[in-house]
Design a protein around this nucleic acid. Structure first.
Lengths: 189, 189
DNA sequence: GTCTATAAGTCGATAGAC
DNA sequence: GTCTATCGACTTATAGAC
């Protein structure tokens, strides 16, 4: 791991715990074990840290979504994969997931615009999957807007719930979440 | 409206838009139409603004919950009332609802402890309602933890979705949300 | 009750020695 | 590549004139 990667790792944890604005370069430096001035030999400024952390995880989710969309899975299976995607990265990179959910307001232009573009298209893609599922009669005729919002809220804020659950198995969690979220969407028998 | 109420009103909007840490006393003063120093004739410090805004809305939700619990409604009706409660205050006080959801991390002790106490008991009460509904066979045997988390996520983050919907009728929204959230919980026919 | 002036501290970021 | 020293701007909050 390079020094820059270490700095980003420590910054991510602090941004998550205290928020971007409340985290100082001195805070980050202390975690890394150097003086604040030395950070600037590895990064150009504080905003760069936020931008790189955010765009990296945003691109991971975007790629995950593209893989799901390009597959020949059914809408139900696509939704299951999407839930799996969120659980995997919530467990693997909880800090990054927390930051992308809560700290994006502190992004400056032009990165803010780039992020919002990815975010919008991500939401539209979820909407499309559910719409397809309804059209193919795999899902009940639910309220599209509210269902998308509800699923997205649950997936986005999973990190805040997950980190206080200690002995939970990610694989088991995935099964429980799939069942819980899809039973509200799934066609009744 | 007193000057203090006006200050809290303007502060709430800025805390929501920019976050507590990124909002300066000068920002608030400018919105109110006075100098930053003059604010201190009406409030004692910045943290007091956050604490009063947060605890006021927290108590509103706590009282709403108590009214629901003390009623003789069925679990399903209680959950419907709870959804109505969140929609009402999301529409009436979107800034306060946003702040309680996103800015509570910046609360200082002892208010932080008080807030977390209310928050914990609120979550336990939702859990109790759903548990009762399952016991009375009004709800399906859903995964309790995940269902509570999912409903709470959806209700808490409603403000972020609502403020970008322009022509939505709160009464209609309530019906749509009740249907959407409860169909995932409700027993299948 | 509002203002100007300012205290006392923190912020992000840079300069330059080593 | 890390340090010390420091700049200049900004922060919350107070003192005191009016």
């Amino acid at each position: 791991m390079t020094k820059k990667e270490l700095i980003k790792l420590k910054a991510a944890r602090l941004f998550r715990l205290k928020g971007y604005k409340a985290t100082s370069m001195r805070d980050i430096a202390q975690e890394v074990g150097m003086e604040a001035a030395s950070l600037y030999n590895h990064i150009s400024n504080k905003q760069e840290l936020l931008a790189e952390l955010m765009m990296h995880i945003a691109e991971i989710f975007t790629e995950g979504m593209e893989n799901i969309l390009q597959s020949s899975l059914s809408p139900r299976e696509k939704l299951e994969r999407l839930i799996g995607l969120h659980i995997r990265y919530t467990v693997e990179k909880p800090n990054a997931v927390a930051i992308i959910t809560s700290e994006w307001v502190h992004l400056e232009e032009p990165t803010l615009k780039e992020y919002l573009l990815l975010r919008n298209s991500y939401e539209k893609n979820i909407s499309k999957i559910i719409q397809d599922g309804i059209a193919q009669k795999q899902f009940a005729e639910v309220d599209l807007e509210i269902t998308v919002f509800s699923i997205l809220s649950t997936l986005r804020w999973l990190y805040s719930w997950y980190h206080q659950q200690e002995n939970i198995n990610p694989v088991e969690l995935e099964q429980r979440m799939i069942q819980s979220l899809l039973d509200g969407v799934n066609i009744r028998n």
